[in-house]
Design a protein around this nucleic acid. Structure first.
Lengths: 229, 229
DNA sequence: ACAAATTTAGACACTCTTGTCTAATTCGTC
DNA sequence: GACGAATTAGACAAGAGTGTCTAAATTTGT
């Protein structure tokens, strides 16, 4: 097992490139068709490689599936932690800053390609691969939720919010902010950008009505005009 | 096409019973294995009928699938409307009554067998059968959300709540009340009874902090003890 | 330009599944 | 008890998909 230091040149570049391309296409096909319905020939065609190459790289349909889930989990986690790093610790405008955070989280981690695919695979095949998705649960929600909760705890400690249980607050924040996207998520679709913003805005306003310390001055404006049209 | 008035005696009872049994087992197998992975022989075995009987009744794997989704949608809708009928219009204890409503909705419509199956089928096969699930969307969310929103509007009109947009409030209510069950739902599991109660309690308290008119006297107590343990 | 490694296309055996068909059996009803 | 309808078990053809194998073509590093 050689170790490749420079990430771009030493190991056969085409080789890794093909591996990536395979995993990518496999993710798409597994999502569309499910594990049982996914067709290796189709994955090969979509990746632009021959079927044999897939077997050379991954050996087996099931091993390929595992590789896909691991890859997605890793990339999604990276995205989530990168976004958590943008959480407003010392907000100027708490409402606007939280809305921004919520929109970033949605656009970069939940509605993007990887997030959509991972979510669907968990929903679809989660019960069939308990150990694989137990691993996801530890690496994913098990690490991201506490991180988000810690940020809310910090806001509370800084006097910006009045919350008792940061874990509950974090989950409720996400629940509120995605409240209007549930049906879209359920059907596997991606909400439009304005829908994400709308849901985040409404959600954060309600969140701050419940947990905000002082009522932020710029609150109501002309909301509700779009909602019931 | 004969019309059968008495629901129990006229038409060959064993016939209808078998049809029900088939659809029931098919729902379970389609959920576990997905459409492509579902095996007619397995469905037959689980329903306690021969494969041929399934073809006699439904003709075709795809037609069977459609029958399953229609059946589930119908039963779930009935359950939801029955539960909406128990919405507290003139609450004595608003917090307790809303918690009760939320728990009923979860236990009778979302976490029960039919709800779980329908949710999974929508998530799994929704993209493959646009017209079928468009129908579900109209019959299901398209009718239930307005009904729930109307009840919240009534509470607001009665002076129990201070909400601007009943539709938004209804969606946020559900989002809050299910905030702590998301991971479980995602993996296709059913939360325990105490988890449902816990999530509903926390959700309703936050909801009332945001939209309640007067702070209900019995509010905080010893919450938070379980949450972070 | 040469040699090694990788990729490719295609054929192949094997398994699994769907949907049909037939003959025997069971069930409900008169 | 007898009749007709429904159900059953099993065989069957047809098709699709997985994973293997081989020989040719291509890419890569030296």
């Amino acid at each position: 097992m050689k170790l490749h230091v420079s990430p771009d040149t030493f190991p056969p570049r085409g080789h890794e490139a093909k591996r990536l391309s395979i995993v990518d296409s496999a993710a798409a096909v597994f999502c569309r068709e499910g594990f049982a319905g996914a067709n290796i020939d189709l994955i090969a065609a979509e990746a632009g490689v021959s079927r044999q190459t897939i077997y050379n790289h991954h050996g087996d349909k099931e091993k390929l599936f595992v590789a896909v889930v691991r890859d997605l989990t890793e990339r999604c986690n990276a995205g989530i932690f990168a976004t958590i790093a943008t959480f407003p610790d010392q907000p100027k405008d708490l409402e606007a800053d939280l809305i921004g955070f919520a929109v970033r989280l949605n656009q970069n981690c939940i509605c993007n390609r990887d997030g959509k695919f991972l979510r669907k695979l968990i929903q679809t095949e989660g019960e069939r691969y308990p150990e694989l998705f137990a691993e996801w649960r530890e690496q994913g929600p098990g690490r991201t939720w506490p991180a988000i909760a810690a940020r809310f705890a910090r806001l509370a400690y800084g006097g910006y919010l009045a919350i008792e249980d940061p874990d509950v607050a974090a989950r409720q924040f996400l629940g509120l902010v995605n409240a209007e996207l549930q049906t879209t998520f359920m059907l596997g679709g991606s909400p439009r950008e304005d829908e994400v913003l709308q849901s985040a805005t409404n959600g954060v306003r309600t969140f701050l009505r419940a947990f905000g310390k002082r009522r932020s001055a710029t609150s109501v404006e002309k909301q509700g005009a779009l909602a019931s049209a």
